[in-house]
């Protein structure tokens, strides 16, 4: 188990290197001159020269790349052009907000996806199955920004249950946090929940037709134990594998959702950074989001490894 975790962590190193290389190369990949793009159409020649000077664009290439990596290893991602503060600080400030909403949203996804998926499978081809499948289909087909707007119209404008946007930290007021994060979390969750419902349903149907389920019934066990223990333990494995995917979609979805709900998280920070061509911030955000996704995927893999005795024990022997 520890050996496996370590080897997965080691495998992440080359990937992180590639991502950082891409982040570094971004300035060279954009067509034309980076300084012009950053400075915008109104920048004078002197302004452009200053930008070049500040970003070290006039240095020889090998110096630029070595200083990029030296700084990176020291945890220095440069200074944000838009905020004037170190990129790392900005990211660390905003991360807990996005993380909180993501975990909230992920919990909704898992609970809703698993429950409806299982109910659908247990009522295969009956009315409940069709309703669940329909809901899953709707969840998958609705774009989440559209859903976010509909939720605002319905629950904020008409019913007045939730504020239309903004954010209250959990430490300030848990109720306030719930009020400001529930709609964004739901809007983010729906697509994934639909996906998870379908995966859970089809996996459950397959598991229920397996010989060991018949054995469990032949032993006289109650349906509750047969489904809730024997079947569910086998359903969890494929579900855990898609969790990694779901997390990636959640994080990228958070950009749009945070902008719509005016939440000062990592997503809206990145959105603003892109719009205002804040290269250091985009670079830093890219690297840290990639690193956290990699980390989460490793957690998921280790979880999968731990769930499946066939893999776990082979590696122990």
């Amino acid at each position: 188990m520890i050996g496996y975790t370590v080897s997965r962590l080691l495998q992440a190193i080359p990937i992180l290197f590639l991502v950082s290389l891409f982040a570094f190369g971004m300035i060279y990949l954009i067509p034309g001159d980076a300084a012009t793009v950053i400075g915008g159409p109104e920048a004078s020649a002197a302004d452009l020269e200053e930008i070049r000077q500040n970003m070290g664009l006039n240095e020889p290439f090998y110096l630029q790349i070595t200083s990029f990596y030296t700084n990176l290893f020291q945890g220095d991602l440069g200074k944000s052009l838009m905020l004037g503060t170190p990129v790392l600080d900005a990211i660390i400030d905003r991360t807990p907000i996005t993380l909180g909403i993501s975990i909230y949203s992920l919990s909704i996804t898992i609970i809703f996806g698993l429950v409806t998926g299982i109910i659908a499978a247990l009522n295969h081809n009956k009315l409940l199955d069709q309703i669940a499948t329909l809901f899953a289909l709707i969840g998958i087909s609705l774009p989440n920004f559209w859903l976010a707007l509909i939720l605002i119209v319905l629950f904020s404008v008409h019913l007045g249950w939730f504020p239309t946007g903004g954010y209250v930290a959990f430490s300030e007021s848990p109720i306030g946090w719930l009020k400001t994060t529930t709609m964004p979390a739901v809007a983010l969750a729906l697509l994934q929940a639909g996906l998870l419902t379908r995966i859970t349903r089809s996996t459950m149907l397959e598991v229920l037709s397996q010989d060991y389920i018949r054995t469990a019934r032949a032993k006289g066990l109650s349906e509750w134990v047969v489904v809730g223990q024997h079947a569910l333990a086998n359903v969890m494995m494929p579900v855990v594998t898609v969790l990694g995917l779901i997390l990636s979609v959640l994080l990228s979805g958070s950009i749009v959702i945070e902008v719509i709900y005016n939440i000062p998280g990592l997503g809206s920070l990145m959105g603003n950074a892109i719009l205002s061509r804040d290269f250091p911030l985009v670079q830093g955000g890219l690297i840290s989001i990639a690193a956290s996704l990699l980390f989460l995927n490793i957690v998921v893999d280790v979880l999968y490894f731990w769930l499946d005795p066939r893999i776990r024990i082979k590696s122990r022997d």
């Binding site: 010989d211 018949r214 006289g220 066990l221 024997h230 769930l307 499946d308």
Partner: peptide, 21 residues
Amino acid sequence: IRGRQIGMIFQEPMTSLNPVF
């Protein structure tokens, strides 16, 4: 009745036990 008064052994030994327990 199942398991208590009538026991059954199946044709497929390789797949009749739950792989994760």
